[in-house]
Design a protein around this nucleic acid. Structure first.
Length: 805
RNA sequence: GCGGACAUGGCGGAAUUGGCAGACGCGCUGGAUUUAGGUUCCAGUGGUUUAUACCGUGCAGGUUCAAGUCCUGUUGUCCGCACCA
């Protein structure tokens, strides 16, 4: 056969994309006898910049999995949609005086065109959009359920405020004291906010990680973020006649508590005001601490500062000793009780503070040298100077003292978390309205579910206000309403939901995206959820991933979710960096647009390069020059048409490698090692060319294996070769372990671990036979001459090694 | 500061987990085709060396017949947490 025509990727790709859209081959069925597989990538935020070459890394990797699974006979759901509420769109809209809904629509159209040009096997019939009222109706519905279960509440509190974005930020959105989006240092504001009680799920968010297959760094990061610790709360009596409650993870060291520290914001300070003899000094310190930015305050390795309270003391409950109380900003107001018992002998921070203020350091766990440093080991060491705890291990002492505290009624075992409740309101226009009205008489009243969705009002201006009020607050027609409960005058909530709201449940909507009666039918959820494989960025580990697990668990508790965890498996990809090795961004001028790559090399080549670029989990530097290698592979695959000969069996010379390739490509796709899968395909292709011919059976398998990576060209070649039907109708090729083994193998012959020669032997040959052959080898014999063989080793398939003297 | 990961040619990266380091690709060198460039094809490509041999996986030790892989120390890069009691 001769080459029929030139490889014109442009025509071919357009042709097959059209065919797939018409036939709907990638549309998943909610009723199928096949086993299901739900494969998910994080849906993008449709920005004005469009897609860059980083996005397709994740999409391509799971497209490989999705396409392979279909060929393996699964009913695969691989959906796509738009996480379209958010600040950049709103800012753009304000700047250009175009409504955000219009901007969003345009951006989505652009993104969709770009994605479709890459030939992903997405089920576009299930496309969703978080800004669609038919979608956000259910986001609001979930909020109402949270409210009804006392998991959404409004509270006046000190919050993180980004002065540049003009919104409140959740703790998870503050990175090193700066705004997650723009990097601006956050400020503090006391504002009334809607909060979600994610802390109620803290234990389960940690414990249930045991049952899911998430990569370790994701699990670790979530566990660290939630920050669970076990300890005790202990009440200390004070000379003021009241109590000071502390949280400690080391109740065993209570006898060593020689002073106490409370945060500068602690409520007791106001109560003790009249008793304080150094009130002015205390007030000055409070001001000093209050003025510090978050960044300064959390800076480690700075000198400890503080003020000793004059006029108030505490009593250590175990020994009745009066101990001083300090205020210091190393104690956080927001964690535990905002107060600690200080045990300088066994806590590094307390040790530093005690040294600075010349406070007594008492050893209560023997084993360290307190002249040098605090002894913080809890595995070894014996209790001393601790009355009834003396002689116990730390572990036993903890149990005993906790029991004692409970008996005395002055303490109790307690678990604490670093995780805070989720600040859920944003002072912006382009988000889901919170479906709550405030009535003077009835308080916060949920809207009737039947009135959902509560639509965003059509307005002409939506600038954020400098005061921190939502732009919706200025729309009195919209704000003023009637109370659903008493019918009296009431006002709507004017803050909107954060961008993380719509994405917290979107994967459920894909199961049944057009349902108007429920967020998805129970049967569809039962069938599809949990997601079998979810890939996304590490930057979402403590944001989207944690939030959505929380929402899903709540929905499970109220009978909506079918399981307790939403994602069976979570993997994560490394970022694609610009050609200069820096993060791709418009301001750095190093953004590579996939449209340009597709235009010049074609989607198939682009996809191949996306996986060939390197280790999926690590960051990779884009290099347009390197794409050539991937292009050559497809060119050569195309040219193979002219070499294909009749034959329904694999060529004997290629058979072993074909079986090996089926095995390797399959395994590698499953492990997201597309780089080595492509390398193996290239190796096989090189071998075919060396051999000079191939059978149709050889070619068929090569096309099937290439299909997930380069779906258009493999379909086209399948059609040209008249192999029948389309690749999407075929089955993934099978390998036989037996046939992956070479019959003849080359062994290295080592003398004292150095390779001196190579011999080819039958893979099945007996050890003695192989060793004799090695000894007989000319080069080896030369090195063995006159030497004494002390040891002979044979590693089948690898080498033989003679140890000589 | 604590915790984790990593360190391999000019470059991106492989190495079945202790068994021939550098697969595959880019780049580079030489050659063929071409008026030329590009494409394509052939050969080569870790370093020193004429063959032979020696040296090579950040650095210094160690274990082993055998170490990129294991152990100890050390340096550097990246990530996470960042006074959470």
């Amino acid at each position: 056969m001769t080459v029929v025509n030139e490889y014109n990727f442009e025509t071919i790709e357009r042709k097959w994309q059209q065919k797939w859209a018409e036939s709907g081959v990638f549309e998943a069925s909610n009723e199928s006898t096949k086993p299901k597989f739900y494969c998910l990538v994080e849906f993008p935020y449709p920005s004005g910049q469009g897609l860059h070459v980083g996005h397709p890394r994740s999409y391509t990797a799971l497209d490989l999995v999705a396409r392979k699974r279909r060929l393996e006979g699964y009913n695969v759901l691989y959906p796509m949609g738009w996480d379209a509420f958010g600040l950049p769109t709103e800012n753009y809209a304000i700047q250009h005086k175009i409504h955000p809904a219009v901007v969003t629509k345009d951006n989505i159209a652009n993104f969709k065109k770009q994605l479709q040009a890459l030939g992903y096997s997405f089920d576009w019939s299930r496309e969703i959009n978080t800004t669609d009222p038919e979608y956000y109706k259910w986001t609001q519905w979930i909020f109402l359920q949270l409210f009804k279960h006392d998991l959404a509440y409004k509270k006046e509190m000190n919050v993180n405020w980004c002065p540049s974005c003009k919104v409140v930020l959740a703790n998870e959105e503050v990175i090193n004291g700066g705004c997650e989006r723009c990097g601006t240092q956050v400020e503090h504001k006391v504002k009334s906010q809607w909060m979600l009680r994610i802390t109620a799920y803290a234990d389960r968010l940690i414990d249930d990680l045991e049952g899911v297959d998430f990569i370790d760094r994701v699990k670790t990061q979530q566990i660290n973020w939630i920050g669970r610790s076990y300890g005790a709360e202990v009440s200390f009596a004070t000379s003021a006649g009241d109590e000071l409650k502390v949280y400690t993870t080391r109740p065993d060291t209570l006898f060593g508590a020689t002073y106490m520290v409370i945060s500068p914001e602690h409520a007791s300070l106001a109560q003790w005001n009249n008793l304080l003899e150094n009130q002015a000094e205390v007030a000055a310190y409070q001001e000093f601490a209050g003025k510090k930015s978050d960044f300064e305050r959390t800076e480690v390795n700075k000198e400890k500062t503080g003020v000793r309270l004059a006029g108030v003391q505490a009593i250590n409950p175990v020994n009745g000793q009066a101990i001083p109380i300090f205020i210091s900003d190393y104690v956080l107001a927001t964690y535990g009780t905002g107060a600690i018992m200080a045990v300088p002998g066994h806590d590094t921070r307390d040790y530093e503070f005690a040294k600075k203020f010349d406070l007594p350091i008492v050893e209560v766990v023997a084993g360290g040298d307190l002249n040098q440093a605090a002894f913080t080991d809890i595995e070894e060491g014996t209790m001393v100077n601790s009355g009834f705890l003396n002689g116990l291990s730390v572990k036993d002492a903890k149990a005993k003292i906790t029991a004692w505290l409970e008996e005395q009624g002055i303490g109790t075992a307690k678990t604490n978390f670093k995780l805070r409740d989720w600040v859920f309101s944003r002072q912006r226009y382009w988000g889901e309205p919170i479906p709550i009205v405030h009535c003077e008489k009835c308080g916060y009243v949920p809207m009737p579910e039947s009135d959902l969705p509560l639509r965003l009002p059509e307005v002409t201006t939506y600038e954020p206000t400098a005061t921190g009020e939502s732009p919706l607050a200025t729309l009195s027609d919209w704000v003023n309403t009637t109370c659903p409960q008493c019918g009296g005058p009431a006002k709507r909530e004017t803050d909107t939901m954060p961008q993380w709201a719509g994405s917290s449940w979107y994967f459920m909507r894909y199961a049944d995206p057009h349902n108007s009666e429920a967020l998805a039918s129970p049967a569809s959820l039962e069938y599809w959820v949990p997601v079998d494989w979810y890939n996304g960025g590490m930057e979402h580990t403590t944001l989207h991933l944690l939030y959505s697990r929380f929402w899903y668990k709540f929905l499970y508790d109220i009978g909506v979710s079918p399981t307790s965890e939403p994602y069976a498996k979570r993997t994560s990809h490394g970022m694609i960096l610009g050609e200069n090795g820096e993060k791709m961004s418009k301001s750095r001028g190093n953004v590579v647009n996939p449209d340009d790559i597709v235009g010049e090399f074609g989607a198939d080549t682009m996809r191949l390069y996306e996986v060939f670029i390197g280790d999926f989990e690590k960051p990779a530097t884009w290099n347009t020059a390197s794409i050539k290698g991937c292009q050559r592979y497809l060119d050569r695959l195309w040219t193979l048409q002219s070499l294909a000969e009749d034959g329904d069996a694999y060529s004997p010379e290629l058979e072993t490698m074909i079986h090996q390739t089926i095995r390797k490509v399959g395994n590698d796709i499953e492990q997201l090692k597309g780089n080595t899968a492509v390398a193996q395909l290239m190796t096989l292709l090189n071998r075919v060319y060396d051999h000079g011919s191939l059978t149709h059976a050889d070619y068929r398998t090569l096309l099937l294996l290439t299909n997930p990576f380069a779906p258009h060209v493999s379909e086209e070649l399948w059609e040209i070769m008249q192999y029948g039907g389309t690749v999407t109708d075929q089955a993934w090729p099978q390998y036989e372990e037996e046939k992956c083994r070479e019959k003849m193998v080359e062994l290295a012959v080592q003398i004292n671990g150095k390779v001196r020669s190579r011999i080819v032997v039958n893979a099945e040959a007996a050890a003695s036979e192989v060793l004799e052959m090695a000894k007989a080898d000319e080069a080896a014999a030369r090195h063995l001459e006159g030497k004494n063989i002390v040891k002979e080793l044979y590693v089948p398939g690898r080498l033989v090694n003679f140890v000589v003297k």
